[in-house]
Amino acid sequence: MLTKRIIPCLDIKNGRTVKGVMFENIRDAGDPVALGAEYAKQGADELVFLDITATNEGRKTFASLVRDIARHIDIPFTVGGGISTIPDVELLLHEGADKVSVNSSALKYPSLVEELAKRFGSQCITVAIDTKLTQQGWKVFSRAGTVETEWDTLSWAKEVANLGAGEILLTSMSNDGTKSGFALDITGDVSRQVSIPVIASGGAGTKEHFSEVFVKANADAALAASIFHFGEVPIPELKDYLASQHLPIRL
């Protein structure tokens, strides 16, 4: 039976892992390759590495880091952050990334998703969606959550699925960093109404939050960062708990 995936996310700046709480207050949590290998050993199902470096030099460092990760880690990983062109994607896949995630560039040029899916196959194209609950409902935000777009979240999710995305990484900015649980309503709406897998992100604080997002919101995978980095919810313990709740989990 296909299992629910547990995915630690590592934010990378200048070759080091960092984690922003509410996209601010970044704390250093170590070496990405060592951390990734440790997570793989602990039973993480996949890894996500997000490049939050803004400079060209930093981007080059990230590409060589991707190669290092691929060399040492035997589970799939997705890379994202600032990816906006076909050559960007080609380079990262060539260095050994299994999937790439696009976000702001897809909002700017939706046809990019279609081009990438045609060129590289849907299976390696993840669209990351940052969403926030506003007075107009759940809206999509671009540029690391700083710019509100016209898109309603469910419509954008359906649109990227139609354009050929292989997966959606849905981050609720309203929940991110709060440790009060995932955004069950919007995650459930997206997961039930699109035909591609959905990774829930933002708000994980306890083991129960994971069980909730799988059972109540039908998420296919759940992503978290700081609670894993700082050992608040160890992955083996989390997976044992989820299995005890009769969820399909790889142990």
């Binding site: 296909l2 629910k4 995936r5 199902d45 292989g166 591609i196 296919d220 995978a221």
Partner: peptide, 11 residues
């Protein structure tokens, strides 16, 4: 009716 692609760990 399941999601396609079939993506993840299966036995």
């Amino acid at each position: 009716d399941l999601k396609v692609p079939h993506m993840g760990w299966n036995n």
